[in-house]
Write a protein that binds this DNA or RNA. Structure first.
Length: 813
RNA sequence: GCCGUGGUGGUGGAAUGGUAUACACGGAGGUCUCAAAAACCUCUGGGCAAUUAGCCUGUGUGGGUUCGACUCCCACCCACGGCACCA
């Protein structure tokens, strides 16, 4: 008996598989295609970490299963190597990112191979490779050409700790309502900057509608819809003497309840009102005070503040009522028109404001059941002229029509989603391929639709800067390289844009590049895209739900409109993976000392054992603490299977062994399809528990088991497969991983004798042994004559007897 | 507050409306051993009872549908995740 030497065996097969690229995905193969994708890692450590192992193992098992079932499977891998994580790692290590990243990628590739992931290495991509980011820049130029990229001076989130601006999505709320950076939880503040934005709101509707075409879990669908934040309502025209403006509302049915109007302090129309108002100084003072408030103050502010524009009135359309005008800090400038109609009776915030300023409250909707004000649900319309008595929902439609007829309003839709801040004043990113001319105009460095220009001017290489660290004032480190900045376009002096793109840029389209990774004429061949798209199954992290997953859908929809991709959605199906916590049940971190290094685990127990361990934990999407006992159990399982090869014989399997095998095969075949890998592992254990003490094990059965186990424990299974088949030299055609998945025999999965539980009034009281598929009559007869059951019947006839074939019988008395 | 997901032994978790707790971890006892580890075997939801049986109870709480409910319906409680002065 040879003990299982995981180190030697895993190293051997890793080399063979990689050298022969046995997991190659073939373009235009006759086999049906499956594109299985897992989010690409950003290399920012010494190797893959345990989170990656959690994310990649199940998709790998699944794609191996598909490959063995006759599919042309693509399971690619690449490196999201631009961006803050890599740059931070470089600063920390004191090395230049351009050097460090390549070393890091080597380690990552090595650890992916050590885990046994079945990747097609011909399709490997790296977002920092100029051959790759040439096309990232090209895509940006396409967006720019279509008016979806814009340079704008605007308030953006600035994080002093990270020395970087952040997109809305990269800023999160703490429990106390304070805004911090998503990466690292550092405080952020609003600052005015000139930034590049991508107009994702233009695709808001398409991004919502597209969710109906794909198979995403409700949690993800819901989170994206929530983030986009669609509200349907009416834009209503208001008037104050000669000043006209529009207000967005979702509740036109409360029009008769308006008792004031409120403007955001930043609103540009206020200047016009200032000339007329009686308390000009007071108003100016209020605005100044509000604007000077730090974001922190405004965020945590409990009480609403405001000031009345004395002497100014606004006329409410249809009703003709005149109402006072306020400036209030609870009105947000960038939502709707930055103005709201105050209906205190039916809006909690307006109610609070009216209460503080002692304003009139007019109830215009009567709830079915008496309730305190403010009442925000539907009810019966009152105090609204001719409309009284209607249901408020119907009234909303009616008044919208009436407003529209009189030219006083029209249906309108508003979205919460904001323009995506796309530039970063950091070194480690794709340079934005634009130049600024002396007259202030901005030009692309080439026309993306002119192949010759594209060939000449792209990629715009990132210059190698000795000092790449971020600047104190938030300007780009690229400004240190004057020779790079100063350039000429059409003979005119120009300065290059010095901002770079955010981490997200490269990952917006990487799944497209895998399809045609080496194309240097275009970003990808359309025919190949037609074959491979959409991604059939996409695995990733929940943290990307409103970032990468939304951003890449946005780019894809744009590309679809440009007829550059054949499908309206990139990903047909999506599942978010869970997390591995430390032994203590807390988030892994170096300071807590609870980090599990997967490569150390592989050294000690082998990759197969680690793979099985993370699969056995439970469902893919859940969060688990690391259990060091579990790895020993699964490592034992691997050794057990390996040692069983010494027991194989040509003698036919016993009927019992056959039954256990085919049951296991049937169950696993069904479960793996549904990605229930944890119960697959249980099935393996049940099978092994039942046969491991046999003196002899039938060779065919054992080899079929090895095939089924191969996606889970690829190294050990390859070793056993090669040995028992007596393949002397390695030939990729003989790999266990491209063998056909064994078929189970339905007949052999069925028991001949069944222990049938007997219930009396729904409670199990006894059981009898019956032949499988015994007639109902016979079963009933046997059951009713059962001694124990007779006791429960007490001489009476049962009212009803329900027999579920081969499963259960219930006697109702 | 709104939206979503979930709540099963000491722990991770299994269960097309059909014997709840498969499989594993942990625990208890045993075999082997001078001893320990490893390995193997038995037991392991709670309670009553106990040679054997047997009985009661039990999937967050309270109702309902059903011969039968972890599963379906209604109400509530709790945990986690997303959004949030979004008009």
């Amino acid at each position: 008996m040879t003990p299982y030497d995981h180190k030697k065996i895993e190293e051997k097969w890793k080399s063979h598989w990689t050298e022969d690229n046995i997991y190659e995905a073939v373009d235009f193969s006759d086999k049906p295609k499956k594109y299985i994708l897992a989010e690409l890692p950003y290399p920012s450590g010494s190797a893959l970490h345990i989170g990656h192992v959690m994310r990649y193992t199940l998709p790998d098992v699944y794609s191996r299963y598909l490959r063995m079932n006759g599919y042309n499977v693509m399971f690619p891998m690449g490196w999201d190597s631009f961006g803050l994580p890599g740059e931070h790692f470089a600063i920390q290590e004191g090395k230049h990112p351009s050097k460090l990243i390549d070393e890091t990628v080597e380690y990552y590739r090595e650890s992916v191979q050590r885990m046994g992931y079945g990747v097609d290495w011909n399709r490997e991509i790296k977002t920092t490779d100029p051959k790759y980011y040439k096309w990232t820049q090209w895509l940006f130029l396409k967006l720019f050409k279509e008016g979806l990229a814009e340079y704008r001076k605007m308030p953006v989130w600035w994080c002093d700790e990270l020395k970087s601006v952040l997109a809305d999505e990269e800023v999160v709320n703490t429990k106390d309502g304070i805004k911090v950076s998503e990466k690292g939880n550092y405080p952020v503040e609003r600052k005015m900057f000139s930034q590049w934005v991508l107009k994702i709101p233009q695709y808001a509707e398409k991004l919502i509608q597209g969710l109906n075409e794909v198979d995403f879990p409700d949690s993800i669908r819901n989170a994206q819809i929530n983030w986009i934040g669609k509200s349907e309502g009416v834009a209503i025209k208001f008037k104050s003497d000669d000043i006209d403006f529009e207000v967005f509302t979702t509740r036109p049915d409360t029009l008769y309840g308006i008792t004031f109007m409120a403007f955001a302090p930043e609103h540009p129309l206020i200047i016009k009102f200032l000339e007329k108002t009686e308390n000009k100084d007071e108003v100016k003072k209020y605005i100044q005070k509000t604007m000077n408030k730090s974001d922190l103050e405004r965020q945590t502010l409990k009480e609403k503040t405001g000031v009345e524009l004395k002497g100014i009135e606004v006329e409410v359309p249809l009703t003709g009522k005149k109402v006072p005008v306020f400036i209030a800090d609870y009105v947000i400038m960038d939502y709707g028109t930055g103005i709201l109609m105050g209906v205190p009776a039916h809006d909690t915030r307006d109610f609070e404001f009216a209460d503080k300023f002692d304003l009139e409250v007019i109830k215009v909707i009567e709830p079915a059941i008496k309730q305190d004000m403010p009442f925000v649900d539907e009810g019966t319309v009152i105090n609204s002229g001719d409309y009284n008595g209607m249901n408020s929902k119907d009234f909303a439609k009616k008044i919208t029509e009436d407003l529209e007829k009189q030219g006083l309003g029209k249906p309108d839709v508003q979205y919460n989603i904001r323009d995506w801040v796309f530039s970063r004043q950091r070194y480690w990113g794709e340079p934005i391929p634009l130049v600024h001319l002396e007259d202030g105009s901005i030009k692309p460095i080439c026309d993306p639709d002119n192949p010759k220009e594209v060939e000449t001017y792209l990629p715009l290489n990132l210059p190698v800067l000795e000092d790449y660290t971020p600047t104190e004032d938030g300007s780009s480190p690229l400004e240190r390289d004057q020779s790079w900045i100063n350039t000429k376009i059409d003979g005119k002096e120009a300065k290059r844009e010095t901002s770079t793109m955010p981490t997200w840029a490269g990952s917006c389209w990487y799944y497209i590049r895998y399809i045609d990774a080496k194309n240097d004429k275009e970003f990808a061949d359309f025919e190949k895209l037609k074959y491979w798209l959409p991604v059939d199954k996409y695995f990733g992290g929940a943290e990307h739900t409103t970032m990468h997953l939304l951003y890449s859908r946005f780019w894809h929809k744009f590309l679809y409109d440009q007829k550059l991709v054949p499908t309206p959605e990139p990903y047909q199906w999506r599942l978010n993976g869970g997390l591995m916590l430390g032994v203590d049940g807390k988030k892994m971190s170096k300071s807590r000392g609870n980090v599990v290094e997967p490569m150390e685990v592989v050294d000690e127990y082998g990759a197969d054992a680690l793979r099985m361990t993370v699969l056995f934990l439970g469902p893919y999407e859940d969060v688990y603490p690391w259990n060091p006992r579990s790895i020993t159990a699964l490592s034992k399982l691997i050794s057990t299977v390996y040692s069983l090869k010494d027991k194989i014989s040509e003698a036919p399997a016993t009927p019992e062994a056959q039954k256990v095998f085919h049951k296991m095969l049937k169950n696993v075949t069904g479960m793996i399809k549904n990605l229930k890998m944890n119960t697959c592992v249980s099935e393996f254990m049940i099978f092994l528990n039942s046969i491991k003490s046999e003196k002899e094990i039938n060779k065919d059965m054992y080899l079929n088991f090895i095939k089924v186990l191969a996606p889970f424990a690829p190294f050990m299974c390859e070793e056993v497969w090669q040995e028992l088949n007596e393949f002397k030299n390695w030939d990729k055609e003989n790999s266990v991983h491209i063998q056909e998945w064994p078929k189970f025999n339905e007949k052999l999965t069925k028991d001949d004798v069944i222990i049938l539980p007997i219930q009396v009034n729904g409670k199990v009281r006894s059981e009898i042994e019956i032949k499988a598929d015994e007639s109902e009559e016979k079963v009933k007869e046997m059951v009713l004559s059962d001694e124990k059951i007779q006791k429960y019947l007490d001489g009476k006839n049962p009212k009803q007897v329900i027999y579920v074939k081969n499963r259960i019988i219930n006697i109702v008395t």
